[in-house]
Nucleic acid binder design. Structure first.
Length: 105
DNA sequence: AATATGACATGCT
DNA sequence: AAGCATGCCATAT
């Protein structure tokens, strides 16, 4: 799988994340059919724009940016605005990546 | 071509 | 729970 197609897939998956939901980088990669390419997801988020990048968090529910970063606060604000409860830079435990958990249940 | 870097993940200590 | 080590993949130097 070349990176171009992978990027397109990942892009699509990210765009498909419903409002109020969050996904881990690995979950996105997996949904795109690219298991283990979490870092590629990161690359896509950085390079491509117009995506709901704020809905993508780390596997532990924490935001990927440093806590003092502006992007961090942006993301946090956006998520809260969309109905996602963030505490201390991370979504509430057990609610993180909800759809993913539901998917594997 | 080789090494370093990054919005990561997982396992072990 | 927190930190360290290893695996991963694409880019930049």
């Amino acid at each position: 799988m070349n990176s171009a197609a992978a990027s397109a897939k990942i892009c699509a998956v990210i765009r498909a994340i419903p409002v109020g939901e969050t996904r881990s980088y690995a979950a996105v990669a997996r949904e795109a059919g690219l298991p283990g390419r979490a870092r590629l997801v990161v690359w896509v988020l950085k390079s491509s724009d117009g995506l709901p990048w704020h809905r993508v968090l780390r596997a532990d529910g924490k935001i990927g940016f440093p806590a003092d970063s502006e992007a961090f606060q942006q993301q946090q604000a956006r998520l809260q605005r969309e109905g996602v409860a963030i505490q201390n830079g991370r979504v509430k435990p057990g609610k993180a990546i909800s759809l993913d958990a539901h998917l594997w249940a």
